[in-house]
Write a protein that binds this DNA or RNA. Structure first.
Lengths: 213, 213
DNA sequence: ATAATAAGTGAGTAATCACTCATTTAGGAG
DNA sequence: CTCCTAAATGAGTGATTACTCACTTATTAT
């Protein structure tokens, strides 16, 4: 027997809103369209969400908090792997981490698109994003790089923040360009070799090794 | 004597639209607001532009055709091909190229923001962007990298497209993160040291040089 | 100066928007 | 079944939208 769960309609509305927002942008979407997509009456939307903006906020706050959680996990894991075997190849650690993150991103591409589009135009949401994810992530990454610099694994002259931004930029842009060129992703990002190549470039650069004078 | 130029109002409308679109997104903007910002009556807008979409299209097509095509593609080609016989350090060539490009980007940040936001939701404009700028730029960059690979300056195992995307991503994200964190850019991107650091990372990576077994 | 033409205007319009609320439908308790 | 309450509905509402058009103002030609 299929029992109707409470929250069914609310989830239907959220899923519909994610779809419509990601395709038409927040301001380009209408509540009537979201209702239609969700298979509910327009009035039903406003029993679960006070305003249209409230739909967007609830969607993005949830995403932001789940990402904030992964930041905590990342820092914890670094702590643990450090104890286990400190000789672990940094590159392989980063590759594994990236592969895992990309899986999550791939499974939630519309959400990622909404996030990066709308935080530009909603300062309240941008503030939460920066405070809960951007700054903590940067802190974790910088701490990691500084430690590796002391261990002699990363060049001392590398600026940790710049290196972090560079890496995130490489990954972000890989996702973005695939999203734009192909309506649908033809091959999995997390499975493509591009991931490994990016990390290789980050660590070793593109220049051929030369004997320096 | 100040003579009123024809095209004055059209330019005023375009400038106003760039400002409003960049702050509120296309769908979040209204023609009445653009008119107010431009200091013209709302009806005047529709003497120069058939529809609201027509404003956006004219703005972006202009950016893509007159600006991006010549400034990005043509100069990229010139930069990368005209240095061919010189012994100039590739890194310095890239740095000079990037410094110049960033100046143009900085001078047109609102336009850049509109471009990257709206091509997501306007397939007609995205198509023009990809065909006139993305693909030609990629072709030039790939040709350059392949040449340098043959010259032994760049590692043979580097994938040219991945390397290009990585580099563009690094730069793009540097601009993006500054744009988001600070309402206004506090220091010039083209003058900041981050530019040089990014190119250093691209060429040499972050890993400390080790004697490989 | 006058006529002819173009540029500019803003009140007006139909359509659409986010949101409300009186009413209907559904589900569980007794 | 009969209540009772909460969930769901969709026609209705005032505000706002992109766009029009009859009209006014400015510019040019003669």
């Amino acid at each position: 027997m299929v029992r109707k769960k409470q929250g069914d309609k609310e989830n239907a509305i959220i899923e519909a809103a994610v779809k419509v927002f990601s395709q038409k942008s927040y301001h380009g979407s209408t509540t009537s369209e979201i209702a239609k997509e969700a298979g509910v009456a327009e009035g039903t939307i406003f029993r679960y969400f006070r305003t249209k903006k409230d739909i967007l906020s609830k969607i993005l706050i949830k995403v932001i908090e789940s990402y904030a959680q992964t930041v905590v996990v990342d820092s914890l894991r670094e702590f643990l792997t450090n104890y286990k075997d400190s000789n672990a190849n940094e590159k392989e650690v980063i590759k594994a981490l990236l592969r895992e993150r990309l899986k999550v991103i791939e499974a939630n591409l519309p959400l990622v698109k909404i996030l990066f589009t709308e935080i530009q135009f909603h300062p309240d949401l941008r503030k939460v994003w920066v405070e809960k994810v951007v700054r903590p992530s940067m802190d974790v990454a910088v701490a990691y790089i500084e430690k590796k610099k002391k261990e002699g694994k990363i060049k001392a002259e590398v600026n940790a923040e710049v290196a972090t931004r560079s890496f995130v930029g490489m990954v972000f842009f890989m996702v973005l360009s695939k999203l734009m060129l192909y309506e649908k992703l033809d091959l999995s990002l997390s499975e493509s070799g591009e991931l490994d190549q990016i990390v290789d470039i980050l660590f070793e650069g593109i220049a051929a090794r030369t004997i320096k004078g």
